[in-house]
């Protein structure tokens, strides 16, 4: 169908034509393709379709004339067509959100980006650049800096890491691959020498990080891992969620969600970590029931609660 396609083509032309008009010596076709993200065939087909366009009665000053000569693209057009189309709200949002996210990731390294964002206010509205705020997740500035340095220098890191799934503190040696914010959390992906496998490490669970002298090993065949790692073999439980807690099931992956008669939900949930579920049960008490529990997590609740309660003597 042509409908989803025509928009970008028209928009490209409405921005390309005034840009070409300001360059009366023409621009190499390849440069136009690179700048406007279009392949040569598509561009030339569109140029040919346009050729000389204009409204009747085709007076010389009213016609757009666009053509290729000597592999350079030229455009001449009426005075009414001197400037590009303003940005759409979606384009403005993309520019501002991407810029704010990058500034949040790396606040010290934003000179040109900060200036660009301030200037964009002219084009997209005075309040708009500052109207979008992006928080990429909790991370200690020193931890971020150290990991960036290790990545830049291609060295191993030693991490004092808290495993929430096992409630254990330990030290890991990792070949760092990549640092990224996903779903509002910062993660380091890397080869964990303890696990002898690729792992994701949350930055807010790193107590400290040291760069080692040893270079990080090469890992050409690495696969991307996701923050929620579970598969068909991960055990499933069924949770009964009270009506006012319905939003809770939106915060983690569920196989299946069904509404119950009282307005609550019943959800089948993969459980990669018993402690994760145990914490939720401790937090929500009677509002969160395990209605099918093949791994017996709910049975651990009383003993865990009693262990915590033991702190509160006196």
């Amino acid at each position: 169908m042509t409908r989803p396609q025509i928009g970008p083509r028209v928009q490209r032309m409405l921005t390309l034509l005034p840009w070409l008009r300001a360059r009366p010596d023409g621009v190499p076709v390849d440069e136009v393709c690179a700048r406007f993200g279009v392949d040569r065939r598509r561009l030339l087909a569109d140029i040919e379709a346009l050729g000389r366009v204009g409204a009747a009665p085709y007076l010389p000053g009213d016609v757009i004339d666009v053509f290729v000569d000597g592999d350079r693209l030229f455009a001449f057009m009426p005075l009414s067509f001197t400037r590009p189309l303003r940005l759409t709200p979606a384009q403005a949002l993309t520019l501002v959100a991407a810029s704010q996210a990058l500034l949040a990731a790396d606040p010290d390294d934003g000179g040109p980006l900060r200036r660009a964002l301030a200037k964009l206010a002219t084009s997209i509205g005075q309040d708009v650049p500052e109207a979008v705020r992006v928080e990429l997740g909790v991370a200690d500035a020193a931890v971020l800096d150290t990991l960036r340095r290790a990545l830049g220098e291609g060295r191993k890191v030693e991490i004092d890491y808290y495993s929430a799934g096992r409630d254990e503190h330990g030290t890991r040696v990792v070949d760092p691959f990549h640092l990224a914010s996903m779903g509002g959390q910062w993660y380091l992906s890397g080869w964990c020498h303890q696990a002898d496998d690729e792992r994701l490490f949350r930055l807010d669970r790193m107590a400290s990080v040291r760069v080692l002298d040893e270079p990080a090993g090469p890992h050409p065949d690495r696969e991307a891992v996701s923050p929620f790692h579970y598969d068909d073999t991960t055990p499933r439980v069924e949770l009964g969620v009270a009506p006012h807690l319905r939003w809770l099931v939106e915060t983690f992956p569920c196989d299946d969600i069904a509404e119950t008669a009282d307005g609550g939900v019943r959800a089948t949930v993969p459980v990669a970590s018993r402690l994760w579920l145990l914490r939720l049960l401790l937090q929500y008490g009677p509002d969160l029931q395990v209605t099918r529990d093949p791994i017996g997590v709910a049975a651990d609740v009383p003993a865990t609660a009693a262990r915590i309660r033991a702190r509160y003597r006196g």
């Binding site: 970008p8 928009q11 490209r12 921005t15 390309l16 840009w19 690179a34 700048r35 406007f36 993200g37 590009p84 189309l85 303003r86 940005l87 759409t88 979606a90 384009q91 403005a92 949002l93 993309t94 520019l95 959100a97 991407a98 084009s123």
Partner: peptide
């Protein structure tokens, strides 16, 4: 979101 077309208006 919109892609790099957001930059077309500034010369791509």
């Amino acid at each position: 979101a919109a892609g790099t077309d957001a930059l077309w208006a500034f010369g791509g």
